[in-house]
């Protein structure tokens, strides 16, 4: 919706555009606006301009970026008051001859590390807390699969939209509820949670509904619906959260339960047990117990204090 303007790249932006960048120095704690004049060309994105500033004018500007084509979701920032991906935003879209000024700020609702770089630790912890992976009752079968889970195209179409999320954090930055309540799970995590509740292959839907039913879960949403407006992948988390709530409402009244889960296909004729990965291909050493890691909270040391990195429904 916002930032999806296919014709913007064909327009020519103003020759010189003033970039007002919000700077922050963590050492001195100083915050200030800095202006840079950038010579533009047709098809130039805001990320291109920021990199030009970094190369030619001021190499101390800090930002995060990676793919430059709207896939990785690293370069989220607030451009002219709207959270956008800098790599997908054409300058011609946000600046014109009448007002050739582009303001760039770090994402709202996130702790700022430096300049335009924000800290996503809590955001990803919330994402982790909704258990964003398939869970079956038969854990052994899941570890040692004997076939595929059968999903019809109609069932897939219902959840496909919500699988497109790239975790860029724009919805979280635009959410007025996440601004007030820092523990609110946020549109991204709840959208993901809904995607697994309606996924026919998933069987732990009751546990997922319990996570959504917590104090900082889906009931905090007030349907301002800006999350869907700023989403660069048209995921529509606002709809996901309202659907999740109505499902929860019906479930609590005993009117809804997940009727069907995807059956296992027949065992292929050439089925063989899964080979263990060679040691050089394993991400963690064989000594690490993954099941214990999953159930135990992660603790890290921050300034000599031990901080628990966990978000559960029980505390």
């Amino acid at each position: 919706m916002v930032g999806i303007d296919p014709k913007a790249a064909t327009r020519t932006p103003p020759k010189t555009v003033v970039f007002r960048v919000k700077r922050y120095n963590p050492k001195s704690g100083r915050e200030w606006w800095q202006e840079y004049k950038v010579e533009t060309h047709r098809g130039m994105t805001v990320l291109d301009a920021l990199l030009k500033i970094k190369e030619e004018k001021d190499h101390t500007v800090v930002m995060r970026y990676s793919c430059r084509m709207g896939v990785c979701g690293s370069c989220g920032m607030v451009i002219n008051g709207v959270p956008r991906l800098a790599c997908q935003t054409q300058i011609a879209e946000v600046a014109d001859e009448g007002n050739p000024v582009v303001t760039v700020e770090p994402l709202y609702n996130f702790p700022v590390v430096r300049d335009l770089l924000t800290d996503f630790t809590d955001f990803f912890e919330k994402h982790r807390s909704v258990k964003p992976y398939l869970l079956r009752k038969d854990r052994e079968e899941q570890e040692e699969p004997r076939g595929q889970y059968l999903v019809s195209p109609e069932e897939h179409a219902l959840m496909y939209e919500f699988t497109l999320c790239i975790s860029c954090g724009l919805c979280y930055a635009a959410c007025p509820v996440a601004a007030i309540d820092p523990d609110y799970l946020g549109p991204q995590a709840l959208g993901y949670l809904f995607r697994y509740v309606i996924d026919p292959r998933d069987e732990e839907w009751q546990m997922r509904l319990m996570i959504a039913d917590s104090e900082h879960g889906c009931h905090k949403c007030h349907y301002a619906a800006t999350c869907s407006m700023v989403c660069p992948k048209v995921v529509d988390p606002a709809q996901a959260i309202q659907r999740l709530r109505s499902l929860l409402f019906k479930y609590k009244l005993g009117l809804w339960r997940k009727k069907k889960t995807a059956p296992l296909s027949e065992k292929p004729k050439d089925w063989k047990p899964r080979k263990p990965l060679p040691p050089e291909a394993q991400l963690v050493s064989p000594d690490v117990d993954l099941e214990r890691l999953e159930s135990e909270p992660v603790t890290v040391e921050v300034d000599g204090k031990r901080v628990e990195l966990r978000y559960t429904i029980y505390d």
Binding site: N80, Y108, P176, I180, A224, A225, T226, M229, V230, A238
Partner: peptide
Amino acid sequence: NPWLVRVEDHPER
């Protein structure tokens, strides 16, 4: 935040 985010054509907000 409700006033800072300036999205056009958005009566829901």
